[in-house]
């Protein structure tokens, strides 16, 4: 791998490390406190809010899991994430392909449209959208919410995928076209496989956004059995605002899945970003 900086230089990297370690403490310190507090008893947090726990109170997790109804809400959030990611990748990928590789008449206007769409304040259309969803029977349903998530997350996904696809060499496509392949085949068989790190990036960004989304989930899902992990945490944190150990345990549980997925895919994720760039 090419090293753009520093090679063959006498400059010491020590100052770099000093600053980076300081930033590291800034970024991870609060998180570490949260994780440590999640295994302390409530009484111990009062006396020792920052240090290592004396006793590990693992029962915080069991209690938070049960009281927060996480066994239901985790599944619900997972379903919403899966639906939204698939939707954005398939539909957004198709649009990005069209914008990047096909001679779409009015591509500029479409880009502008997507930019405008993605910049409209959610509060502007929340109530009319709610009325519409009630009218067509999509309220209180995962399908209904997934459609909204797809719509709101697609523009950024399309921008990312488009710029990724723009960087792909045309050789393969041209060869396929000469062989008489249809656009769908070129898309599905050539462009998607070549740009799959980009898809992974977009998938992670969308998964993150949906897993963490609060406002729409509370407004559009009213049935307690359909609650997402974030709404149950919000209610939970309000209810147990004094019980820092319990709320910390709940917080750790709800960030754990997304963290694990991120850590597993981080190489591809960052690679996707590196190669795709983020050109508008």
């Amino acid at each position: 791998m090419n090293r753009p900086f520093g090679r063959g230089r006498d400059l010491s990297l020590t100052p770099n490390y000093v600053v980076l370690v300081a930033l590291l403490i800034f970024s991870l310190g609060p998180l570490a406190i949260m994780v440590l507090n999640s295994v302390k008893s409530r009484a111990e947090i009062g006396e020792n809010p920052l240090g290592l726990p004396n006793d590990f109170e693992w029962s915080n997790y069991a209690r938070a899991w049960e009281v927060g109804n996480f066994s239901t809400t985790m599944v619900n959030s997972g379903l919403l994430v899966a639906g939204s990611v698939v939707g954005v990748l398939v539909l957004g990928g198709m649009a990005a392909y069209s914008l990047a590789k096909l001679n779409l008449s009015g591509a500029g206007a479409l880009m502008l449209f997507l930019l405008v769409i993605s910049s409209l304040p959610i509060h502007l259309f929340l109530v009319p959208l709610f009325v519409l969803w009630r009218e067509i029977g999509l309220l209180n349903s995962f399908v209904g919410l997934v459609i909204i998530y797809i719509a709101l997350n697609a523009p950024l996904g399309i921008f990312l995928l488009r710029s990724y696809m723009l960087q792909l060499p045309r050789d393969f496509e041209d060869a396929a076209r000469v062989d008489g392949a249809g656009e769908w085949q070129i898309f599905a068989r050539i462009v998607v496989p070549l740009s799959w790190p980009g898809f992974l990036t977009v998938g992670l960004v969308v998964a993150l956004a949906v897993w963490n989304e609060f406002l729409l989930a509370t407004v559009f899902l009213q049935d307690e059995s359909k609650f997402t992990v974030i709404t149950s945490y919000q209610n939970f944190a309000t209810r147990f605002s004094r019980d820092w150990s319990l709320t910390s345990a709940a917080a750790v549980m709800m960030i754990l899945p997304i963290l694990v997925i991120f850590l597993i895919f981080q190489r591809r994720f960052i690679e996707g970003m590196t190669q795709g760039g983020m050109k508008g």
Partner: peptide, 9 residues
């Protein structure tokens, strides 16, 4: 190719 996402939006 852009129609589905356009309709949803």
């Amino acid at each position: 190719f852009v129609l589905p996402i356009l309709l949803i939006n």
